[in-house]
């Protein structure tokens, strides 16, 4: 079993293509189905490392501190991302609560932590056996972490509430915006191809018991 570094197959239609010289064009699209095949990004590992650290620092205040405080009829009420999950849980909508927990709390954290640990290991050139797995996991989680959708929901709620109560923006709100920006930035700075090439480079030579027909 041997890999062919000069060729790739389009993930959208399986057309076999020659890989463009890395020094050449920045973006490559499939000529048959028009899927974006590859986008070259510079200094990907360092950028991902820096962005994921900043995101992780903002994470705890973003999730646990109140986003907004409502003032109406002389009463105050505030809530955080975590409170919103707890409230669904108390209303006995367990399935929705679990999804809320995964998409708005757990997966955003996991995604940043995984990218952080992979980028750090690549930076220090430390190979561990679960490195490919960690990086694959971060891909699987990509679309299930939804802090960006959540932020739009916060804005919709603000408009919904603003007609009946006055709103005060709390620290959590700004931390949450920062978290969303960092999460998006980490995705756009991530060049998977470079990461995989680096992982392959620092991987120690294959052990004998692994199946190799070549």
């Amino acid at each position: 079993m041997r890999s062919l570094s000069a060729l790739i197959a389009c993930p959208g239609c399986d057309l076999l293509l020659k890989k463009i010289n890395p020094a050449g064009s920045i973006k490559q699209f499939c000529p048959r189905c028009n899927r974006l095949l590859y986008q070259k990004k510079s200094h990907s590992i360092s950028k991902v490392l820096a962005i994921s650290i900043s995101g992780l620092i903002a994470y705890i205040p973003a999730i646990s501190l109140p986003l907004l405080t409502l003032n109406a009829m002389g009463m105050h009420q505030n809530g955080s991302v975590f409170d919103a999950f707890v409230s669904f849980y108390h209303q006995n909508y367990i399935f929705v609560a679990v999804l809320l927990f995964l998409t708005s709390i757990l997966f955003p954290l996991l995604k940043l932590s995984l990218l952080f640990s992979v980028a750090l290991q690549l930076k220090l050139r430390l190979y561990s056996n679960n490195l490919p797995f960690l990086f694959r996991l971060s891909h699987y989680l990509d679309e299930w972490g939804m802090p960006d959708v959540y932020l739009i929901a916060v804005l919709v709620s603000i408009i919904k509430i603003s007609s009946v109560a006055s709103i005060q923006y709390d620290v959590g709100f700004f931390c949450f915006i920062f978290l969303v920006v960092m999460t998006r930035a980490s995705s756009s700075a991530l060049d998977s191809e470079i990461f995989w090439q680096e992982i392959q480079q620092i991987k120690p030579p294959m052990q004998l018991h692994e199946n190799s027909s070549d």
Binding site: L67, L68, L70, A72, M73, M75, Q77, N78, G79, S80, D83, A84, F85, V86, S87, F88, Q91, V96, L99, L100, T103, S104, E143, W144, M146, V149, Y150, I152, A153, V154, V156, S157, K160, I161, A165
Partner: peptide
């Protein structure tokens, strides 16, 4: 576009936390 449909659920979660007098 799939994940953006969760929007309404998030709004309801936020509303039920915030609008609770």
């Amino acid at each position: 576009v799939g994940r953006w449909s969760m929007l309404d659920i998030f709004v309801i979660a936020l509303m039920s936390t915030l609008v609770d007098f």
